[in-house]
């Protein structure tokens, strides 16, 4: 028993030392990682809706969006959000921006594990560019009657992206309109 206690104690000491070192490294790297993440997020949002400051609105624990206001006029320039749906092999996460009329200003696929060479081509500009200016109604693969040209050999990925965006815009639109209504009602 004594031996076990001793062994346990040694293990504990080693672990504590390791933890200490890790905590120290973490304290150096964590801010850097956080800053990188922020920077990247801001950069991607800026790419979608330029010259804006962003304000986060949480709709539900699963969905939130950013309202983009003009840096100077504070006028609403549009919204950005992340849409996600299961694609061919796993979830495909797409960041997108819409203008105040809920027309897409651009998209960026931020996370996917689709088939390389096929579905994975959804990150390429050839595919993402076509989303610019599309409305909710257009957001279907061309095969399904929409205006999104399918990736060759990867209809499922195309569908997943299109339909996730469509759903997200729908939720967004509802929420924005609701919000506006509440404000109106409050004003009354």
């Amino acid at each position: 028993m004594k031996l076990y206690l001793k062994l346990g104690f040694i293990l504990l000491v080693v672990t504590v030392i390791a933890t200490g070192i890790l905590a120290y490294v973490n304290s150096i790297t964590a801010p850097q990682i956080e800053a990188l993440k922020q920077e990247e997020a801001i950069k991607s949002r800026e790419e979608l809706i330029p010259d804006s400051i962003f304000e986060e609105v949480e709709v539900s624990p699963d969905f939130s969006y950013f309202i983009a206001r003009n840096k100077d006029t504070e006028e609403i320039q549009g919204y950005t959000f992340i849409a996600s749906q299961r694609g061919y092999s796993d979830n495909v996460k797409t960041m997108a921006g819409v203008d105040p009329d809920f027309k897409l200003t651009g998209i960026k696929v931020v996370e996917q594990s689709e088939t390389p060479g096929l579905g994975a081509n959804c990150t390429g500009p050839d595919f993402t560019k076509q989303f610019q200016g599309k409305t909710m109604e257009d957001l279907m693969a061309d095969k399904d009657g929409g205006k999104i040209k399918s990736l060759s050999g990867a209809t499922i990925t195309t569908r997943a992206i299109a339909s996730s965006l469509k759903q997200a815009i729908q939720t967004l639109q509802q929420h924005v309109q609701q919000q506006a209504q509440t404000i109106q009602e409050d004003a009354q």
Partner: peptide
């Protein structure tokens, strides 16, 4: 294609 409800709906709409 007929398995996909999105597609089927769009056909009807069309």
């Amino acid at each position: 294609s007929l398995r996909d409800s999105t597609f089927v709906n769009s056909l009807t709409a069309d």
